[in-house]
Design a protein around this nucleic acid. Structure first.
Lengths: 346, 346
DNA sequence: TTGTATGCGTTATCAT
DNA sequence: ATGATAACGCATACAA
C-alpha cells in the first residue's frame, strides 16, 4: 500500500468500463464525448473521489495553469492587497497563484524563481526592477512570461504594472515643504537592492533641491519595515541638532512606529513634529492621529499586472505596461512646523 | 520550439557523457557517485542552468517535499507569525510550504484541500476543527498526514498544536469583571464554522456565569475581522441602554476598530469604556492607548505544528498534540468602569 | 561506481 | 465517439 493511496485515471477508467483516454477527455473536453458515456465516467469520478494528479498532468501537457509571485515579505500588509487582486484576476482565468517571499534577500529571490520554474509555473510576477543580473538573465533566456509590479519603468522586453515611486515621494515632500518645513529628515526602507525604497529617497531629495534646500544634508535612516525600527530611527532623529521638524517615512509601518515613539517622548503630533507615511495601509488609519500618507492603487495595480501576464502567457503581445497615479491623503500627522525659531536666538 | 524550452536530465547526461541515472544520483545522493564524474556532471548542470522538473520528480518518487497550509485569510496579520514559524521549521527539514486562503469560506477550503492533494502535498495544516465533514473525511480516508492548529482539542486520530480559546477568553473576561465591570458586551468573529470564534464567545459567557452575571443577556455582535466592522459594532453597542462599560473583542483588529470609533465618539478609553483584544498582533501596540489583549504564542505553536507534521509524514507516531498557554497582557484599554451610577438616580 | 530499463499519471496523436 | 499507445522528466530496482 502506498502512503496514502490516491485513485488514478486508470482506476476511473476501469470502474467506468472505458479507456483512460475517454476519462481524460471527459474532464478536459467534455464536448467530445458521448452523453451517456460521460454520465457513466463522471459517476465513477465521483465514486472514487478522483482528482487529477498535478504532476502527471503538467508532464503530459507542458502547462500548469499556475503562476508564481515572489514578494519581499508577507509579514506586513504592504503587498497583501495588490497580490490579492492579482490572484483574483488570475483565478478568473483559471490560473492558480503560488506566492513565495524572500525577506528582501535577493539570493532567496533567485532560489524562489528557480523553484517556481521547476514547479512549472507558466508565468511570474516580481516586485520592482533592481535585482542581481541572473534572475533577469534566467527569465529572459527562458523567455519566461514575467511582469514587474510596484514600480514603473520603461523597458525593452519586460512589462510592468506600477507607479512612479520617485514622483510620489517627491510630491509628498513638496507638500511637507509647502507646510513650511525646512529641516526635513527621512526614515526609509533599506535602499540597497530595493528600487522602490531608493526612488522614494531620491524623490524627497529632488523636492528639497527644487525648493532650494540642501538635499545632501538631509539625514536618512534606513531600516527594515518594522514598528520597532521606525521608533528607534525616530529617537535617533530627535537627538539631532537642530532637530528636524518633519520626518518623511518611506512606509506606513515605519511611520507608525515613529509616531508612537514620538508620542512616547512627549512630542505633540503634528504640533511639535510632522510625520508622513507611504502606502496607505489599514494601519495608517488607526494610529492617533491618523497618518498623512501616500495612497497607492494597489488593487488596480494587481489587476493590471494579472492582465498583462495573462496576455503574455497566451502568446499575446498587445498589452502595454500600466502606470498608475498615486495620491496624497492628508490626515492628521502633517502640519506647520513649531514656531520655536526664537528660542535659538535667546 | 517549446514555449520556453527547459533542459532536462537527458540533456545534462548527454553533455556530461553519462547516463541519466548518474545525473539523478549526483543530485540526490552525491555520495554514491565518483568524484571525477560528479565534477563533470555538476559542470554540465551549471552550463545548462538545469533545474529538476518538479512534476517528473514527484511522479517518479511519489513525494514532493511539499506541505500545504490552508488559512482563512492572509489579509490581516493574525496567521502571519504562526505560519511563518511553521514554514521555517519545515524549510529546515527540506520541505516547501504552499499556503492557500479561503476567505473563511468552508467550500473554498475543500477545494484548496483537493488542489493541494492533487499537487502532491505530503502533508497538510488546517486551522481549527470545525468544518464540513467531507474535508475531514477526505483527509482520514486518504490517511493524509494532517495537523490542526490554532485550537486545541483531543481527538482520536488527528493531532493538533493549539491553545484553549475558550479558556483564554474566559480568563480575559474574568479580568474584566475583576476590574468591576458588570455590563459587558462582545464583538466577536463570525461564529458559524469558526470554532475559535465560537469558543471565545463561550469562554466569555462562562466567566459571566461564574461571576453570577446573566450570561445570556450579553450582547454579542459578530462580524468579519476588519477595522470598519469593529467600529460599526461599537457604534451599535454604544446605542444600547444601558451602555456596556466594557467591550471584549474576539480579535485585535475588531478591538482596534472599536477603539478608534469610541475615541471618535468622544469616549475616553478606558475612562468611559474598556476594550480588550485578542491575539496580540503588532497592531495592538500602536493604537492609543495600546490594547489590553491576549497573547498567543504563535511562533511556538507554528513550530510545534511543523514538528508534529514532520513526524507524521515520516511515518512516526510518537509526537503528541501540543497545548499552549496564553497570557493576558495588560496595556492601556482596560480599567475600572466609570462611576456614573449616580447619574441614573438623579 | 555506473548503466539499463521500467513505471509514475496524464495528455495527445493516431487509429478505428 | 472511443481506444491504443507514445511521450513527458525523473527516480530507482536491478544488472553489470
Amino acid at each position: 500500500m502506498r502512503k496514502h493511496s490516491t485513485p488514478t485515471l486508470t482506476d476511473v477508467a476501469r470502474l467506468a468500463g472505458v479507456s483512460t483516454a475517454t476519462v481524460s477527455r471527459c474532464l478536459n473536453e467534455p464536448a467530445l464525448v458521448g452523453a451517456e458515456t460521460r454520465e457513466r465516467v463522471l459517476r465513477a469520478v465521483d465514486a472514487l473521489a478522483y482528482t487529477p494528479n498535478f504532476g502527471g498532468r503538467a508532464l503530459a501537457s507542458q502547462r500548469t495553469n499556475t503562476v508564481g509571485a515572489i514578494i519581499p515579505t508577507m509579514e506586513n500588509a504592504i503587498f497583501a492587497r495588490g497580490i490579492q487582486a492579482f490572484e483574483e484576476e488570475l483565478a478568473g482565468a483559471g490560473y492558480t497563484l503560488l506566492v513565495g517571499s524572500t525577506g528582501y534577500d535577493p539570493e532567496r529571490e533567485y532560489e524562489q524563481v528557480i523553484k517556481l520554474a521547476a514547479r512549472g509555473a507558466d508565468g511570474l510576477l516580481l516586485i520592482g526592477w533592481e535585482r542581481p543580473g541572473r534572475v533577469i538573465g534566467f527569465v529572459k533566456a527562458r523567455n519566461f512570461p514575467t511582469v514587474i509590479a510596484w514600480n514603473y519603468r520603461r523597458d525593452e522586453d519586460l512589462l510592468c504594472a506600477g507607479f512612479d515611486n520617485r514622483l510620489a515621494a517627491r510630491r509628498m515632500a513638496e507638500r511637507v515643504i509647502a507646510h513650511g518645513h525646512q529641516n526635513i529628515a527621512m526614515i526609509a526602507g533599506i535602499v540597497e537592492g530595493n528600487d522602490r525604497a531608493a526612488d522614494r529617497v531620491a524623490g524627497v531629495r529632488q523636492a528639497l533641491e527644487a525648493a532650494g534646500l540642501d538635499a545632501r544634508a538631509m539625514t536618512v535612516i534606513e531600516a527594515p519595515y518594522t514598528l520597532e525600527n521606525g521608533g528607534e530611527a525616530l529617537r535617533r532623529l530627535m537627538a539631532l541638532k537642530p532637530r528636524p521638524t518633519a520626518v518623511v517615512c518611506g512606509n506606513d509601518v515605519l511611520a507608525a512606529g515613529a509616531l508612537c515613539e514620538a508620542k512616547a517622548m512627549g512630542l505633540a503630533i503634528p504640533g511639535d513634529l510632522s510625520i508622513t507615511g507611504f502606502d496607505n495601509i489599514d494601519l495608517s488609519t488607526v494610529v492617533d492621529p491618523p497618518l498623512t500618507t501616500v495612497h497607492v492603487p494597489h488593487r488596480r495595480m494587481g489587476h493590471a499586472a494579472a492582465r498583462i501576464l495573462l496576455d503574455r502567457m497566451s502568446g499575446g503581445n498587445e498589452v502595454e505596461s500600466a502606470l498608475f497615479e498615486t495620491e496624497i491623503v492628508e490626515r492628521g500627522t502633517l502640519g506647520p512646523p513649531p514656531a520655536r525659531l526664537s528660542r535659538k536666538r535667546r
